[in-house]
């Protein structure tokens, strides 16, 4: 089994590490990189707690992709949403709207929500539903999650 040195930019930080074909992107993020904000859930692509962003700010499932496939790529995790110690507005909206309960799915849910807003700065409800259907949040039933996303979206509306 070949192990390879890969280069990975995570949250703007460059890493070089040895990865094995048996490791997923999730394994590397949580293991050697120690970024445990990203959670391990079903590992089969159904729960969404492992969601991170690719270089284009799209939501991808880190549990379903081999680490070696990401050589040379850039990834953003929940830890990378803050800018100079300030929460991203979607993170703040999750607090304000009580879109967080147990918090286990929250990093994945927030990364998904951020991805919706990246693609649709003022998302319609069906765009929110589509973008969020890849995650499960049993606690909130997604209701206040949608509220929080809409709140950020409509703030953008007003700025225009």
């Amino acid at each position: 089994m070949n192990r390879e040195m890969i280069r990975l930019t995570v949250n703007g930080d460059p890493y070089e590490l040895l990865a094995s074909p048996r490791q997923t992107l999730l394994d590397v993020i949580r293991g050697p990189l120690g970024l445990t904000g990203t959670k391990e859930g079903c590992t089969t692509g159904s729960c969404g707690v492992c969601t991170v962003h690719n270089a284009s700010g799209e939501a991808v499932l880190s549990c379903l992709t081999p680490a070696l496939e990401w050589d040379g790529e850039a990834v953003t995790t929940i830890e990378g949403l803050e800018t100079s110690g300030r929460l991203d507005e979607i993170q703040q909206a999750f607090i304000d709207h009580h879109a967080v309960q147990c918090g286990f799915c929250t990093p994945g849910v927030i990364m998904s929500a951020r991805a919706v807003l990246n693609e649709h700065p003022s998302p319609q409800m069906d765009q929110i539903n589509d973008g969020m259907s890849g995650v499960i949040c049993r606690c909130t039933g997604h209701i206040k999650v949608r509220e929080a996303i809409r709140a950020v979206g409509s703030k953008l509306d007003r700025r225009v």
Binding site: R30, L35, T36, G37, T38, K39, E40, T77, I78, E79, L81, E82, L87, Q91, Q92, F94, I95, D96, H98, V100, G103, F104, T106, P107, I110
Partner: peptide
């Protein structure tokens, strides 16, 4: 009242057992 552990949870700092 927004939850007091909100910051930890939305920022990925909240530690769960598997962490």
């Amino acid at each position: 009242q927004p939850r007091l552990d909100g910051f930890e949870k939305v920022s990925g700092r909240a530690q769960f057992t598997d962490d």
